[in-house]
Design a protein around this nucleic acid. Structure first.
Length: 932
RNA sequence: GCCGAUGUGGCGAAAUGGCAGACGCAACGGACUUAAAAUCCGUUGGGCUUAACGGCCCGUGCCGGUUCGAGUCCGGCCAUCGGUACCA
């Protein structure tokens, strides 16, 4: 089996161009102030979600988004923009650490090797990154500033009056530590006893550890938290004007989970104080027949009566022993125990029992609820099980009950959770739900029993990990209190360790480095490290100015690259109140949906803090966001080792070349869609590129590729001009819309038209011979069209030669206009940069141009006059069905079209015996005769 | 349960409310070749009809609606995939 012959020598020319790009750095982005920087050009910042350099290398899913951004980057450069298109590594992370635990190899070494492999792979695909801006979140030069940003967060608080982050110095209260945006709290974490470590939520799947599948329990530990909840409102509001997929915005909104309602205080007849609950339905307060506390609620301890104590303690123990998995599994089965204590319903004064149950969560609201079984399904289920009273207080139609007698003898059979009208509720009887809520909330506020309030599902961000391979906190502990280390001590580098294993006690591995831990006689270092998200929260800012050792990003560089720019194709911002941020940020950000919530929310949060503190020029980091779809294996399943359907990009490139790989990734279908890989599909795209190659090149006797003799400085024919300009239009518009698949389809049409004599000269799209239209010789259009000398000349040589002969003797048989080729090469360049660079250079040797490099060309503009037809084909419909087509001058009026339709034999045939009711004429489109 | 996305040929797909299936794959036929590969040309949604040129009917998950006209807009279902899960 001999090696298959390459359809064109991509194996030679792709490395050639990649080396040239490496040497000449044509894709270097200049910052304001750099020599050669051109402030007149608009900026464009196009960003990929940078990868975690895993041990397995790139798979075909990664380069899908990367190819899309690369096309846009190259396109914008040809459009004359200053383009920032960087790449880096999200290099801290668990896999490297776990590999270190297994092998003893330091994560730094593993990470360096993985990065090297990723970089090689990316370069082999021919991406036009500015590699001088490459960054790694695990390098001290980078995480120095991650630590610095943490300190900014630590040194600030959220002022509720200004709704902004401010330096902690502006806080006037007694205890600044209680309001810092970074604070320490005892919170339940995912503790995995088998692994002896704490896990992030993402590492817990169905209540078991992702690694090993061991059970995970909640256990309270002292942790660093970031007060993201303070920004909940802004994180929702400022999402609105962003050019993001609606689905992602919705996901974020739901994650933040804003709900408006009221906090209601239930006083305790037998104790001091009260229990506050949050409810979205204060209008159902009269229906509250019991209360439930979360088992973890500290009040349980005080309230439980002696008789109930054994049962309560047993239940609490049972709940604590439940893994997350069991809790989820048993979600539908309600359970609980009465505390023996009672509370007073604030509106009815009724004594109602207080229970504990695990369907009430400590982490949401106040960790306590009022039970309204008639109008809440969970409460209904609970009340049925424990025979608690069910009282209907909302009805579909208004029913005022005089005297407030107790309701139905028969309790309702289901909970009705919809809106309606209040009943059995003296203060609000007859009011519709919305109004009832307002009235009762106002009444509660008046009585000092409650107030309107807003609750969020969003929790503060648990920011510390008991890990080695992450950023150490720039924090020390002195006499039980935390304080920041001076900025000049950054970066705080982790100590060298040989043993990265968790200690088993929950104490972080950094504790092993005794020397490092000791900061001074009186102070020790914080032992936790930051989570993997920390670096990705601001890496896009560092790209603007990656070598700056004075600041996390230079002010001017940040203002330039993160400033607002008019990006064509972006929807104009909706009218309305000016958003708090100024509409700047990354112009295009492409990545997977898996980061819809966490990364994209965390990064927005940091951006807002830094913006409020005056370090940034915009409050939102990513102006336009696009998610690429997942690429499935050839079998339609998710690619995985398990199915043996994983495709390695380098294998594809070895066989078909990087250009074919890139083009296929884009030709598969819409960027955002999930779609299966197909090797024969790659082959089809490779054939297209080979045809484009042979349009310019031919092989001589010795088998060497030479510039084809048929390439000549001739004027394109009218039909060719039409294809050229249609392609310019389509490709330009499609790149702006990220519809790369249809852009490639159009370029295929272009190449086909110029490759096949039969398709070009005689039959450009729309000018195919039409039966009955009165054409003579097929290649001749109407001579009245007025053709120029050049096109006539082409026809002279081209027409008499049959197709076969043309191909047998490519030289001289037919001329291919150089200008047309040049246009194609520029249009195709963002997609297939190596091939087009090579062909451009080859063309330039015989037909020199200035500037010589294709990367310095200007993107062509289409001219509408070449797209206009003299004659067009109009379908004639009778009752919506096409019965004939006629060819008419483009200028044909409605009246003329109607007359032609009426006179048409086929129309007459199909409307025979019917009365013509109406004739719809859409000029240049169609005629529809309505008859019955 | 809830939220979101997607349903179009044998396959990936395309279509400002206006000729459904561009472009590509696969398949089939042909040219070239001793032969194959490569390349090139052609056919290709289904059904019926014609000796043939042609012609007719059906067809974008299902049901209904708006419209001269619906893959596209509206209402109601169904299926597949993804996310989420006691959030009071």
């Amino acid at each position: 089996m001999s090696e298959r012959r390459k359809p064109y020598p991509f194996d030679l020319l792709e490395p050639k161009w990649q080396n040239l790009w490496e040497e000449r750095r044509p894709f270097r982005a200049l910052n304001p102030g750099d020599p050669g920087f051109d402030p007149a050009r608009p900026k464009y910042y196009v960003l990929d979600m940078f990868p975690y350099p895993s041990g397995t290398g790139l798979h075909v899913g990664h380069p899908e988004g990367y190819t899309a951004t690369d096309i846009v980057a190259r396109y914008k450069r040809l459009r004359g923009c200053n383009v920032l298109h960087p790449m880096g590594w999200d290099a801290f992370g668990l896999p490297a650490e776990q590999y270190a635990i297994r092998t003893g190899q330091h994560p730094e070494i593993t990470t360096r090797e993985n990065i090297a492999r990723f970089r090689t792979q990316l370069k082999r695909i021919g991406f036009s990154y500015d590699w001088e801006r490459e960054i790694s979140t695990a390098s001290p030069e980078f995480y120095r500033w991650t630590q610095w940003i943490f300190l900014q967060i630590y040194h600030s608080w959220f002022n509720p009056e200004t709704q902004r982050a401010e330096p902690i110095a502006t806080y006037r209260g007694a205890d600044p530590d209680s309001v810092r945006l970074a604070y320490v709290a005892e919170v339940p974490v995912n503790w995995c006893p088998e692994l002896g470590t704490v896990l992030a939520n993402e590492e817990v799947i169905d209540g078991k550890s992702e690694v090993g599948g061991f059970p995970v329990v909640k256990r309270p530990m002292r942790q660093w938290m970031l007060r993201i909840t303070a920004f909940a409102e802004r994180l929702i509001d400022e999402l609105e004007p962003l050019d993001w997929p609606e689905g992602i915005k919705l996901l974020q909104r739901n994650w933040i989970g804003k709900s408006e309602g009221a906090e209601v205080r239930f006083t305790l007849p037998d104790h001091d104080g009260a229990i506050a609950v949050f409810t979205t339905r204060p209008d159902t307060l009269y229906g509250a027949t019991y209360m439930v506390l979360a088992p973890e609620n500290p009040l349980v301890e005080q309230l439980t009566t002696n008789e109930q104590r054994p049962a309560v303690d047993a239940y609490k123990a049972q709940v604590a022993a439940k893994s997350d998995l069991e809790r989820t599994d048993l979600a539908k089965d309600k359970s609980g125990v009465a505390t023996g204590a009672f509370a007073l319903n604030p509106v009815s004064g009724e004594r109602i029992p207080i229970w504990i149950a695990d369907y009430v969560l400590m982490g949401y609201g106040t960790g306590a609820i009022m039970g309204v079984p008639a109008h809440d399904e969970r409460d209904f289920e609970f009340a049925q099980k424990y025979h608690l009273p069910i009282r209907e207080v909302v009805a579909e139609t208004p029913r005022t009950t005089e005297g407030g007698e107790l309701p139905c003898a028969m309790p309702p059979l289901i909970a009705t959770t919809g809106d309606g009208f209040a009943i059995n509720s003296p203060l609000i009887d007859g009011l519709p739900t919305a109004e009832a809520k307002q009235r009762i909330t106002a009444w509660l506020a008046d009585q000092g029993l409650g107030r309107g309030t807003i609750n969020y599902k969003l929790r503060d961000w648990l920011f510390s990990r008991q890990r080695y391979w992450g950023e150490p906190f720039p924090i020390i502990w002195r006499e039980g209190k935390h304080e920041a280390i001076p900025e000049n001590e950054l970066p705080l580098v982790p100590p060298p360790l040989d043993d990265f294993k968790p200690t088993g006690t929950g104490e972080p591995p950094l504790a092993r480095a005794k020397e490092w831990v000791r900061y001074s006689d009186a102070a020790t270092r914080e032992l936790n490290t930051m989570p993997q998200w920390a670096g990705s929260c601001w890496y896009y800012l560092r790209f603007c100015d990656p070598a700056n050792d004075q600041r996390f990003v230079g002010k001017e560089a940040e203002r330039y690259w993160m400033g607002s720019s008019e990006s064509p194709g972006r929807a104009p911002l909706a009218p309305g109140p000016a958003p708090r941020f100024r509409g700047g940020g990354v112009d295009l950000y492409i990545g997977g949906t898996e980061h819809a919530v966490l990364h994209l929310l965390y990064a927005r949060f940091w951006q807002k803090v830094l913006f409020d503190l005056g370090h940034l020029s915009t409050g939102e980091p990513f102006q336009r966001l696009v998610n690429q779809g997942i690429i499935l294996g050839e079998d339609g399943r998710k690619m995985s080792k398990r199915w043996g359907n994983v495709i390695d990009p380098l294998d594809v490139i070895a066989e078909y070349g990087a250009d074919a790989f890139r083009c296929y990734e884009m030709f598969m279908g819409p960027l955002e869609q999930m779609k299966p890989w197909s090797m024969t599909g790659v082959e089809g795209v490779a054939r297209f590129l080979a045809r484009a190659w042979r349009l310019v090149m031919e092989e001589n006797q010795a088998g060497e590729w030479m510039l084809s003799e048929s390439v000549a400085e001739v004027e394109p024919t009218r039909a060719q001009l039409k294809v050229i300009h249609a392609t310019i239009k389509k490709v330009s518009e499609d790149i702006e819309a990220l519809s790369f698949n249809t852009a490639i389809a159009q370029m295929m049409i272009f190449v086909n038209a110029f490759t096949s004599p039969g398709r070009t000269a005689s039959a450009g799209p729309g000018s195919a011979p039409v039966p009955g239209a009165g054409f003579g010789v097929p290649p001749k259009q109407s001579s009245a069209v007025g053709e120029d000398a050049e096109s006539a000349q082409v026809r002279e040589s081209g027409t008499p030669a049959p197709a076969r002969e043309t191909r047998a003797l490519p030289g001289g048989a037919r001329s291919v206009p150089v200008a047309a080729l040049r246009t194609l090469l520029v249009l195709l360049n963002p997609f297939a940069p190596h091939l087009t660079s090579e062909l451009w250079e080859t063309l330039g040797r015989r037909f020199p141009v200035e500037p010589a490099e294709i990367t310095n060309q200007r993107w062509p503009e289409y001219r509408a006059e070449f797209l206009i037809e003299d004659e067009i084909e109009i379908p004639l419909q009778v009752n919506g069905k096409v019965r004939d087509r006629i060819t008419v001058p483009i200028t044909a009026t409605s009246a003329e079209l109607e007359a032609l339709a009426r006179a048409n034999v086929r129309v007459q045939e199909f409307s025979a015996g019917l009365t013509i009711r109406k004739i719809i004429v859409i000029p240049k489109r169609l005629v529809n005769v309505v008859a019955n």
